[in-house]
């Protein structure tokens, strides 16, 4: 592993080496694969990856084809944070007792494995304070099983279990405030990121790995299959998510909020929605109320962050 500067200032600073290998079976244009590739560019010392069941897991470990260049563990869907806790503590005590080398532990889960079924294990791990980084790649539904709604699916979005029908126009509930839940554990570092802003994301992974405690990064990863758009638009849509304030990019360091990508003049949310099949029905007049509800939520989320940043209060 080449020694690199602690943080990367330009794209050319980013190491050439990939610890995520090609030959994986993620869809063409998969946003999650970009996230994982970028995250693995940030590793700084021997690292082990713990992967929840999901797209990344199945598409990178179909025996005998494995797309990792680091030790990699998959146990189940909902317990990734727990498995990572065990590895982290196991290595720590072995280091203390018998001089085994320490590893950085990165846990990776999708939104289903993190917002929903894995939330309890995540909360437990964060509360116990193990040294590990948990990365949630959020494609806003259960994509691996064929696009079912999750706690990360936003209001109005169409999935196979929240279809837009004659009576119900897509998912009716709002997206869970995951980073709020995570930050409420008062862990040293939590952040959001977008694959459209690779340096911000890679540097956040690096920063998180430097911290001796639990850290968390929530990265938005558009999904060509579930969001229904042509594969070439993955990065563009991720950028629109940021530029419309749909997905604010910020960090919570020792409980204090800092907005990393300040969107002073947001693009209209419609620009983000209209390129995606899952939202197209929201542009129909009869679903105006759902569109307004989504817009209101986006605005509320942003305003809350601005307020929290201004006040400098602990969240």
């Amino acid at each position: 592993m080449t020694t690199v500067e602690k943080y990367f200032k330009t794209i050319s600073d980013v190491p050439v080496e990939d610890y995520f290998a090609p030959g994986h079976r993620l869809c063409a244009g998969c946003g999650a694969s970009i996230a994982i590739k970028l995250a693995m560019k940030a590793i700084k010392s021997p690292t082990i990856v713990v992967n929840a069941t999901g797209c990344i897991e199945v598409a990178t470990s179909m025996f005998p084809y494995v797309s990792w260049r680091v030790p990699w563990v998959h146990v189940a869907f909902e317990n990734t944070a727990a498995v990572a806790s065990g590895i982290s503590e196991g290595l720590k005590i072995l280091n203390k007792k018998r001089g085994k080398i320490m590893y950085d532990v990165i846990a990776i889960g999708g939104d289903g494995g993190t917002f929903d079924i894995g939330l309890q294990a995540l909360s437990g791990a964060l509360e116990r304070g193990h040294k590990m980084l948990y990365i949630c790649y959020d494609n806003e539904a259960y994509m691996n099983t064929g696009v079912q709604r999750s706690g990360a699916t936003p209001i109005g979005a169409v999935t196979t279990t929240s279809p837009a029908g004659e009576i119900i126009p897509g998912k009716r509930e709002r997206k869970k405030d995951l980073i709020g839940i995570v930050a409420a554990h008062r862990i040293p570092y939590a952040a959001t990121a977008s694959i459209s802003h690779p340096l911000d994301f890679i540097n956040k992974v690096r920063k998180a790995l430097e911290i001796n405690g639990p850290t968390f990064i929530h990265v938005i990863t558009p999904c060509t299959l579930g969001w229904r758009y042509p594969p070439s638009l993955t990065v563009k849509i991720a950028r629109l998510a940021v530029e419309t304030r749909y997905f604010p990019v910020f960090e919570v360091e020792d409980g204090r909020v800092k907005i990393n990508i300040r969107v002073s003049r947001p693009k209209p949310l419609e620009e983000f929605l209209q390129v995606q099949g899952r939202f197209r029905h929201l542009l129909d007049d009869r679903n105006r109320d759902v569109l307004e509800a989504l817009k209101k939520q986006v605005e509320e989320n942003w305003n809350k962050l601005v307020k929290l940043e201004e006040l400098g209060v602990y969240i």
């Binding site: 290998a21 090609p22 030959g23 994986h24 079976r25 990178t60 025996f63 005998p64 084809y65 494995v66 797309s67 990792w68 260049r69 680091v70 030790p71 990699w72």
Partner: peptide, 13 residues
Amino acid sequence: AMIKVPTSLEYKT
């Protein structure tokens, strides 16, 4: 199924 990695370089997409 503990397998030395990487191996997917054999799987051309």
